[in-house]
């Protein structure tokens, strides 16, 4: 049964409201981050550069001298208009610094998810359709191994193999894709492979069980008993219906990669958001930490929202309860 536009609209409305509530919670938590620092965050951020004038200027610029409630309202108001304050360290606008780093992380995440899909979709489907055979066992064991590997260790092993030993690819550095496509591709290869292999391991397991679940449905049994050729049953009934869970896991993985590439970016000296979070934490640049944590959490929320919406639109059976 197809959903009426009204039902879809009601679902979208509820889902949007839910995201808005979570977003408000995220804002509260990110706002509290600076308040929870024991001691004076501005003094900590200034460190050895401390002078009374610098202190007063930064304190007034960050608004930390005002009452808590007022600070929160002004923080939310500014954040919603894209103003995340200035970096405690460099004095530059946080939003501008974040936007500078965003392309590197997004390009790495897209390469990673691309590699993951190229591996996981065929492997997961093959594994499910050959359940219990040797090839299924090999795929399952490999993906279990992949799930247990720390991503930064995988990165180091790839550097050890492809850079240090074989000398095929550079071990670090970044060139924007807009400047030099070839140079970008050579540099994104190893970090992209690191991110992609780990994500592929998780996705293969998920896709395998999704295909198995669809294959055990009664309509697949019916199709089979009607005497349809195996290829038609698999193509028309099993894979088409398994597409929805594949879409879901790909979205979730993309969100996870965007927020989780911190360590990989550090290993490969990749100047993205993750590296920025790391540098900000090390430098106790709290406004920068706030900004990057907020941006990553919002991207995470948006992708999950998008996945849910697509899910509802693609899968007519979705229960709108």
């Amino acid at each position: 049964m197809r959903l009426s536009p009204r039902q879809v609209a009601a679902f979208l409305g509820r889902r949007l409201l839910f995201s808005a509530v979570v977003l408000l919670g995220v804002l509260v938590l990110v706002f509290l981050l600076v308040q929870l620092v024991p001691g004076d965050p501005i003094r900590l951020a200034l460190g050895t550069r401390y002078t009374q004038e610098a202190y007063d200027a930064l304190r007034a610029a960050s608004g930390l001298d005002r009452p808590l409630g007022e600070q929160f309202l002004s923080y939310v108001g500014s954040a919603l208009t894209g103003d995340l304050g200035v970096s405690f360290r460099s004095g530059e606008p946080v939003t501008q610094l974040l936007l500078q780093r965003l392309p590197a992380t997004v390009s790495l995440a897209l390469v990673g998810i691309g590699i993951a899909l190229l591996i996981a979709v065929p492997a997961g489907i093959w594994s499910a359709l050959h359940e219990g055979r040797v090839s299924d066992a090999i795929i399952r064991v490999t993906s279990q191994l992949g799930v247990s590997v720390p991503d930064f260790w995988m990165g180091m092993l790839l550097i050890l193999l492809f850079s240090t030993t074989l000398g095929l690819l550079p071990s670090s550095g970044y060139v924007p894709i807009t400047e030099d496509v070839g140079g970008w591709a050579r540099r994104v290869a190893l970090p992209g492979l690191t991110v992609g292999l780990v994500a592929a391991a998780i996705m293969t397991r998920y896709i395998r069980s999704a295909v198995l679940e669809v294959a055990s449905m009664s309509y697949v049994r019916t199709a089979r008993s009607k005497g349809l050729p195996a290829g038609v049953v698999v193509g028309r009934h099993v894979l088409r219906n398994a597409l929805v869970p594949v879409l879901t896991i790909a979205g979730i993985q993309l969100a996870t990669i965007l927020g989780g590439v911190i360590v990989v970016e550090v290993v490969f000296a990749w100047p993205g958001l993750g590296r920025l979070v790391y540098d900000s934490v090390a430098a106790r640049d709290y406004s920068m930490i706030q900004g990057s944590v907020l941006l990553i959490a919002v991207m995470f929320l948006l992708i999950n929202l998008l996945v849910d919406v697509l899910y509802a639109l693609v899968d007519p059976r979705i229960r709108l309860a």
Partner: peptide, 22 residues
């Protein structure tokens, strides 16, 4: 809802934020 908010943060990011505070 509190749990939902915590799920909105990637694991390592949330851990890093906590370490940044303490």
């Amino acid at each position: 809802r509190v749990v939902d908010v915590m799920f909105a943060f990637p694991v390592l990011l949330l851990a890093l934020a906590i370490v940044a505070i303490l």
